[in-house]
Design a protein around this nucleic acid. Structure first.
Length: 579
RNA sequence: GCACCCGUGGCUCAGCUGGAUAGAGCAUCUGAUUGCGGUUCAGAAGGUCAUAGGUUCGAAUCCUAUCGGGUGUACCA
């Protein structure tokens, strides 16, 4: 989907509700001579308290030596004229409750009905953001261990892109290491006809390993091939490239099925940094950061128990070395202002060290934001690490096929589908369920993978959103007249829905800022439940609905559908016209 | 041993960086509805936010200790 804005800048009433309110209160504080470092307006905790609230007056009481209610009063008195607030009230010990103007809400809603970007303006000063995610190992088939990084990373990359950042996706694939000697030796042994056996990489790896363990000659050959590979032997390099190519195309099957936007252009393999590793060592040496410890070359970091090992005692490099080369490349060659590593939480210490050393060595300047977007483990329903019945790793492609099969089972009893349509619908629902359930929890916590829960129509699931979308589309199959007239917010359900629709922008920005996709899913769930309530109480196409009310409700429904589609698209989830 | 993360109703999770009576969804119970797609909607019940102290006008949120769970702890990635 392309997101070009169809409305002219001047027509846009600047939204970003929270920052508008923050500015309003900030200026009021200044006018009232109240010093406050950062004004933070929050969404009201209850409907009765208005739409937003500012709670800062209480905190200021002590330093100003005034009563909090008096402080609140002077802030309220100093709020300048504006068209966003209907009225303001002071409650309890000094809460300032802000009620938005219906007129402001309805004007803004009306303005975004034709806009593919729903009135959300891209950042004025975009950053260059590198998102490092997925990073599968080429020696093996992609397994569930790669699922979360791939899903979370891709959605963040989409989100940053939508908000206007210049995003560079980096798939840091593992294509180097001693096991490749064994793999290409085995590939060679099977001959050209043996390439078919690469279909199942897992099996291929196992057999190669078996040969390695059983046959001394084969093992020696494998070791020899590692050396040859590193030495740039043309024949070995050819075998290796061939192997990587096949393995990568397996990954692409997964990406394509998962609706992940990684392509070959985003691949920046570990091996591509090989030539730079010695430079990193020399550079750290020259900067006086490198120390010798127990035969290895390391960098000591303040307040860290263990140093970061840069070069092994046998002269070999480690992944820390590669990561430093990569971080330098990203900051200097790619010019990144923000580098996000979507990697599981177990590597927290590693990244902490890498980031420290990168800054110590000046590979990234102080203002570059380095973040480890960490996430918890994937567990099964009983809370144990997710494995196959016999304890093996679950291949990702198998898991995705199961998702589609299960989705088929969930919907086929509902309606009769043509076989072809059933496949298409099941794929969208099944894959959507896998992605949404992953994205809908706080990524930091462990993730319990539960088929029944994710494929349910009830609760915070993708299917519930997809259903809400399809339901709205069904209204517009019945009605295909024009959308015109004003938005009228008389019923509470209409107003609540309108406000929620206008909060998408704030949600997206805070989700991007903290790299927390679950802010978006929470928003979506609130939105679709609000829509369902609206739909229940506010008839649209019924005969007795006056035309002006009908138009207003159609506009609300239309924007709800657009919002669902847009936000789900950012999460990499597709919608269906009918389910 | 040390470091980091996590303990919120039976289950799965929110809780916007300290605010008002801690919110949802499953599951359980009750009700609406011949419906613009009821696979919906309304309502009830269910919590000493692991425990004990502390800071504060105010704590699930910050500090300390304890208990319980997880992860990581120099030449694998």
């Amino acid at each position: 989907m392309k997101y070009s804005s169809h409305i002219f800048q001047k027509w846009i009433l600047k939204m970003q509700i929270r920052s508008q309110l923050n500015r309003l209160i900030q200026r009021a504080c200044e006018r009232a001579n109240i010093l406050v470092d950062r004004v933070q307006v929050n969404e009201a905790s209850k409907v009765a308290f208005g739409d937003y609230q500012f709670n800062g007056a209480m905190a200021l009481a002590k330093s100003l030596k005034k009563k909090p209610r008096d402080i609140a009063q002077s802030i309220v008195d100093a709020i300048e004229d504006n068209d966003i607030l209907e009225y303001v009230e002071i409650a309890g010990p000094g809460f300032i409750n802000l009620h938005l103007s219906n007129n402001w809400l309805s004007t803004n809603i009306k303005n975004i009905v034709q806009d593919r970007r729903l009135g959300i303006v891209a950042k004025e000063n975009p950053s260059k953001v590198v998102v490092d995610y997925s990073g599968p190992n080429m020696a093996k088939q992609m397994h569930v261990g790669h699922l979360r990084s791939t899903i979370i990373g891709d959605s963040l990359a989409n989100l940053f892109t939508f908000l206007g950042d210049d995003v560079i996706r980096q798939n840091h694939i593992g294509d180097w290491g001693t096991q490749f000697g064994m793999l290409i030796a085995y590939l060679e042994e099977l001959g050209e006809g043996g390439e078919g056996s690469l279909k199942d990489l897992e099996e291929f790896y196992k057999r190669a390993k078996q040969r390695f363990d059983e046959d001394e000659n084969f093992a020696n050959k494998s070791r020899e091939y590692v050396v040859k590979l590193q030495g740039g032997d043309v024949r070995c390099l050819h075998l290796w490239e061939n192997f990587i190519d096949k393995s990568l195309s397996h990954c692409e099957d997964v990406y394509s099925k998962l609706n992940i936007k990684l392509s070959r252009e985003d691949v920046k393999a570990e091996s591509s940094y090989n030539d730079d590793l010695a430079n990193i060592v020399n550079d750290l040496e020259a900067k006086g950061l490198l120390k010798e410890s127990q035969g290895a070359k390391v960098v000591f970091i303040e307040a860290e128990e263990n140093p970061l090992i840069i070069q092994k005692s046998d002269g070999g490099f480690l992944y820390a070395t590669t990561d430093l080369a990569a971080i330098r490349f990203r900051a200097s060659k790619l010019g990144a202002n923000r580098i996000s590593y979507v990697v599981d939480a177990r590597q927290a210490e590693h990244f902490k060290q890498i980031f420290s050393v990168a800054k110590m060595a000046g590979y990234v300047s102080e203002d570059v934001k380095l973040e480890h977007v960490s996430f918890g483990m994937m567990l099964d329903k009983s809370g144990r690490p997710f494995k196959t019945r016999d304890g093996g790793t679950v291949k990702l492609i198998d898991l995705l096929e199961e998702a589609v099969e299960r989705a088929k089972g969930a919907i086929s009893k509902r309606d009769s589908y043509e076989q072809e349509e059933l496949e298409k619908v099941a794929e969208i629902i099944g894959i959507g369920a896998v992605k949404y359930s992953d994205l809908s929890i706080n990524r930091e916590s462990n993730y319990i993978f539960d088929w029944d829960k994710m494929l349910s129509l009830e609760g915070n699931t993708s299917l519930y959103q997809q259903y809400a979308y399809a339901r709205i589309r069904s209204i517009f199959r019945k009605y295909n007249g024009k959308l015109e007239g004003d938005v009228i917010l008389e019923e509470p359900q209409e107003r609540l829905l309108a406000l929620k629709l206008l909060q998408l922008e704030d949600t997206l920005y805070s989700s991007a800022k903290e790299a927390m996709p679950h802010y978006i899913t929470s928003y979506l769930y609130e939105l679709s439940t609000l829509f369902m309530k609206f739909y229940e109480t506010c008839p649209i196409l019924r005969e007795d609905t006056p035309e002006n009310i009908r138009q207003s409700r159609l506009i609300l429904a239309q924007i709800t559908a657009n919002t669902l589609r847009l936000a789900l698209d950012i999460l990499g989830i597709k919608v269906l016209e009918r389910i």
